[in-house]
Amino acid sequence: MIRLFLGIWLAIVTLLAFVLPMSANPSAWYHLPIIPGLEDKARILFFHVPTAWLSTVGFIASMVYGIRYLRKRDPEDDIKSASAAGVGFLFCILATVTGAIWAKFSWGTYWNWDPRQTSIFVLLLIYGAYFALRSAIDVEEKRATLSAAYAIIAAVVMPFFMFVMPRILASLHPQPVLNVQGKTEMNATMLVLLISSFAGFTGLASWMWNLEVRIQRIVMNSLSGLKGETRV
């Protein structure tokens, strides 16, 4: 049911993102504004921004469930933490790829170490390190504890990175949706479409996360069944 709804919702959002006309003076309700310097390339907004948002959310969720695991020692929290990191990693790759394609057409090159690109590169590195660590430990409790600890340390360091990047390089990246000045070049139609896209992608990510948690739960139960114990 939820799968069907999400499929239809995202199909409509995708369709509208590509077919709604852009005009310099949006008059009809279905007109998107032309953003100077971006024009039709602005359409990536509806896919790139939600994926980038979810790659951060996945990481934060992974850290929050990691903290919960360290407090309560419930294996369920570790499953949730690892699954959130898995979904976040997928969206992180998607955000990197969509961003690089956009950069090719806007900046003329796929990769130029813009602060935004560097930040997402670091996020990819952290996800990679997290999964490398998980695959290197066999014992479940140890794996859960150590990966939770690593996720927390990585999260603690992230603000330093946010501080250090803009000081070194000037960014050519378009202003974030929620920028400091509070002004936006979007009109209501664009904003509604973007929010719908956010909702759709967030729904998709939580559906995937839920699926992965249920799969891992079955794997864990069947493994503990082999050891001769049962888990409710």
Binding site: L125, A129, L133, A136, I153, V164
Partner: peptide
Amino acid sequence: IIAAIIAKANTKGPLFPVLALPILLPLLVV
């Protein structure tokens, strides 16, 4: 702290720089 983490893992050698780089990157840049 990274050494404390990897000491408990099975493969210790190659994992250390992999885990340490994202943590140390802001420091190294500065």
